[in-house]
Write a protein that binds this DNA or RNA. Sequence first.
DNA 1: TGTTAATGATACCATATTAGTATCATTTGT
DNA 2: ACAAATGATACTAATATGGTATCATTAACA
Lengths: 132, 132
Amino acid sequence: MKLITRNTDYALRALCYMSKQEGLVTVGQLVQKLDVPRPFMRKILQQLNKDKILESYKGQGGGFKLKISPKKIYMVEIMRVFQGPVGLNGCFLKKDVCPNKGKCVLRKKIRSIEEGMLEQLREITVASLVQH
Amino acid sequence: MKLITRNTDYALRALCYMSKQEGLVTVGQLVQKLDVPRPFMRKILQQLNKDKILESYKGQGGGFKLKISPKKIYMVEIMRVFQGPVGLNGCFLKKDVCPNKGKCVLRKKIRSIEEGMLEQLREITVASLVQH
DNA sequence: TGTTAATGATACCATATTAGTATCATTTGT
DNA sequence: ACAAATGATACTAATATGGTATCATTAACA
């Protein structure tokens, strides 16, 4: 089971790297540092730019930099960008078929697991990943 | 993000239903009760049979019944049957490229979330799902 | 002012996983 | 013998993931 997908993973690493750099960072640098396919990395950064987590500068000497403080870049937000809303889906049967009618026990249990997960997840920021 | 897939879901419902029945239960009954495609339900039950969670009886008047007590049928086990080992995968980069070297912070955080999840998951049995 | 080095946008492709379907074989009660 | 059940197995469809490929745009700089 996957908590995060590759693009989320790569995005987080890129963000961590950038949080330690002063000026602009290019795709080329990241590709070299992180060993990720270049076009894939580009796509990821472009997405982060669209979502206002990065800002970009075109042309020679251009590149990317963080738009907001690493302390305010939450992992759940990055997950949301690349994986959609973060949470655990419930059951698949339509309500009127569910053997436990309205108060489905399974649903509740899953919901509770989800809560625990989110509680921990929400504390993770790029800043918290970088500090050692 | 999916905690459980459809076959796990359907399997759990089928098991819940069977835990409340005395004798044998046929695919036909389950299909009717749960509104799941018949061949899909068959496949699921056959799998549960292979994994010794159900026992089956062929021929006219045949069907399935639980092989072990609902108290001993753990949700994680059903998940394992249909989804493979339960847990959260870590990161994707090979170790020597990981920016945080050996002690990857992300990995640890994910591991911790996984622990919390498993702790809650391990308590769920078919019996615990049926009681209201 | 033209070349070059960067990103922007977009469409496409490959692979894996999930969610089934279809079919034939086997068993067993009537 | 027939019908009603499961066993085994192979195939198919839909979706998500993990990318590639290409052309357009921008801006520094010689």
